[in-house]
Nucleic acid binder design. Sequence first.
RNA 1: GGCGGCGUACCCAAGUGGCUAAGGGAGCAGUCUGCAAAACUGCGAUGCAGCGGUUCAAAUCCGCUCGCCGCCUCCA
Length: 481
Amino acid sequence: MSLRIYNSLTRQKEEFKPLKGNEVTMYVCGPTVYDLSHIGHARSAVVFDVVYRYLKYMGYNVKYTRNYTDIDDKIINRANKDGVPWNEISERYIKAFDEDMKALGVAIPTECPKATETIEKMLEVIQTLIDKGFAYVLDGDVYYSVRKFEGYGKLSGKNIEELEAGARVEVDERKEDPLDFALWKSSKPGEPSWPSPWGEGRPGWHIECSAMSQKFLGETIDIHGGGKDLIFPHHENEIAQSEAATGKQPFVRYWLHNGFVNIEKEKMSKSLGNILTIKDALKNYSSEAIRLFLLSSHYRSPIDYSQESLRSAEAELDRFYETIERMERGWPDVVRGAVNTEKKQNYIQPYINAMDDDFNTAAVKGFIFERVNEANRLMDNAGKWGIDDEFQKMLPRIRTGFKEMAGILGVFNRTAQEYFQERRARSPIPADEIEKLIAQRAEARKNRDFKKGDKIRKKLEENGILLEDTPKGTIWRVKIG
RNA sequence: GGCGGCGUACCCAAGUGGCUAAGGGAGCAGUCUGCAAAACUGCGAUGCAGCGGUUCAAAUCCGCUCGCCGCCUCCA
């Protein structure tokens, strides 16, 4: 088996083969930094983070670029509203985005260029488009002439005539065709601007990605990702710009698009007022739970952010880490036993097959929990009858498999101690107070005063603390929800 | 109106031609426990929206119907 990826352009799964040997070039549309990032941005970032990690895991040398759109109407509007310079807005939200990414454990791409740092390349591409007759200048604006590009609509499955008929955009009468889009916008007084051959102005939205991908990754790139909503017009326009400018097809060999995040069954939108920022989500749930939730369905499907689904993710993490803790506490030497490479490869094959099938992280999660069950069963038996060959053999393999996948998914990758420490940090009652009550309960139990002991346990449970009596003493954890 | 997608148990979700339809959450019962918790075991879809068709064989392919959603405008 080898990696197969669903390509939005051809609408089918295709075997993945990089253009150049072992090197993979990948570009993902980053955020427009005019406000805090929301859970939808988180999904896109996490999904492509896993793609990036998996490609590296497979041994590819991956060059991954994710941009910041730091100049745009929305940023200017926000700056005017707040009464601050435009770049204060973009810098503020780039910082916020970086914090969010760090919190979610998203690896830093090879390059994170800002649009405003790539103006020169944009001017170059625009000039080429003008020279080749794909763009025209109008009073300091430059427009792309959509009809000149044969194949416009191939990604989104649209045809020009229908677009024309259904055009809902207010038509700028000066444009040669209502479908034409801006490559360069002349600036009004007081607006941020850069010098250009056509006068002071700023770039249109679509041109930046064509310019940045070309600058950092070359004229043809292997993978281009983004949310499904970017297919039209953004990615369609990128194709038109890039392929027209370079004369090379395809601009992108594999187009990947992730599905949306709904909130309690509703689309996230400003008008509904249900935008969930990453920071707000992190107030209620751990980053690992959020990440696991995001990877629990296939990346192309829509998913629903709800209290129930996030609690479910937390319950899964609890189950996973309790198993890990049990393994490492009970049989540390066995768990750390060596696994020979050939056996390991064999053993993790189901995981690899799932990832190879268009990054099926949900199936990977399913397989992990099959192994969690197996590990617990083995440990139950070992506890009863002692360890046998099967136990010696399987436990290290299971643990190794978890570690391999944890590195790719970016979840299940902590130690049990770290995990439970964080869970305990969310305790509604101070830890020392809990410890004190546990000691009191132990004393009562020693005196066979179970009534008193149970009362303490019940009181703690009412406050969200669960007790577990183990052979090695009583441990506590924070209840989910 | 055009384009695309989805509908699998109480909830989430994998499976897209062929073993008893993964896994998680919730629930019930049992083992363990002073009692619990955790863990384990068992129960839970005779069926994959409905109806037809193709096939030796379909949740999986084809057609129709119903329901839901996304894009077509800035949007991850």
